[in-house]
Structure formats: structure tokens, C-alpha cells
Computed example of a mutant assay.
Amino acid sequence: MSQLLGRHDCIENLRKDLVDLQGAIVDVFSRIGPVSFSSWKFPDKLSCNLDMVALLDQYDFVEGEVSFNQHSHIVLLELVIDR
């Protein structure tokens, strides 16, 4: 399993999943309003106030940066849990 950590295709799939999840969340929020719960990943922020665009920009695949890509992979997995 560790050989998958930081791979470009894995990171891209996680990013797509997060975009889909965020779209579903925005759809629900449009009907019921924002839910005021702390983020699991960022407990000092409300989950409805996370800037997902900025987070996706920050944690993207970078060619040749194995350590950063592994870190990004883990952060993106944590954001899936957070959503």
C-alpha cells in the first residue's frame, strides 16, 4: 500500500473526490444553511468556512517532490474524512 502514497494518479483522484464531496455539501447547505461544527482537520475553524480551493491549490502533486507528494496525499485523505 505504501507504494501508492504520493502517486500522481492517487492525488488526482483524491482531488476529484474532494471536489465532488464539496459540491454535495454546498448543495445541502443551500437547502438547510451552513452547519456550525468544527473541522476535524482544522479544529480552530468551522468546517463550513474551509477554503477548499486554497487547500486544493496548496496540496497538489509536484513533479520530483516525493516527500511533499506523500504529505499532500495524506492531507487530502484527511480532508476527505473532514468533509
Rank of each mutant, 00 (worst) to 15 (best):
I74M: 12
D17Q: 07
S30I: 03
M1Q: 02
N69K: 02
V80W: 11
L77V: 04
V26M: 09
Q70C: 08
H71D: 11
L46W: 07
N69T: 00
C48W: 08
H73C: 05
I25R: 05
S38L: 12
Q58G: 07
L21F: 04
V19P: 06
Q70S: 11
D44C: 09
P43Y: 11
L77S: 08
V26H: 10
L50C: 03
S36D: 15
V53G: 09
V62M: 14
S2I: 03
C10F: 06
L79E: 07
L76C: 00
V35K: 06
F37D: 15
D9Y: 02
M52L: 14
S2H: 07
D51R: 11
F29T: 10
L18I: 09
N49I: 06
L55H: 02
Q22C: 05
I32A: 02
I32M: 01
D27S: 11
L18A: 00
L18W: 03
G64L: 06
D27H: 09
R31W: 09
G6V: 03
L14W: 10
M52W: 10
H8A: 13
V62C: 12
M1G: 04
F42P: 10
F42H: 14
S2D: 13
D27V: 05
Q3F: 11
S72Q: 05
D57P: 01
R7C: 01
D60H: 14
V80H: 12
S2P: 00
D60Q: 14
F29P: 00
D57H: 13
R15M: 08
D27T: 09
I11W: 02
V80D: 07
S30P: 00
I32F: 04
K45L: 12
C48D: 08
E65G: 00
E12N: 11
C48T: 04
S39Q: 05
L79N: 06
L14V: 02
A54F: 10
V35N: 09
D17F: 02
Y59K: 05
C48K: 11
V66Y: 08
D57F: 10
D44R: 13
V53P: 00
S38Y: 15
D9M: 04
G23T: 09
F61K: 11
R31F: 08
D82W: 04
E12P: 00
H71F: 13
H73N: 09
D57N: 15
L55K: 12
K16T: 09
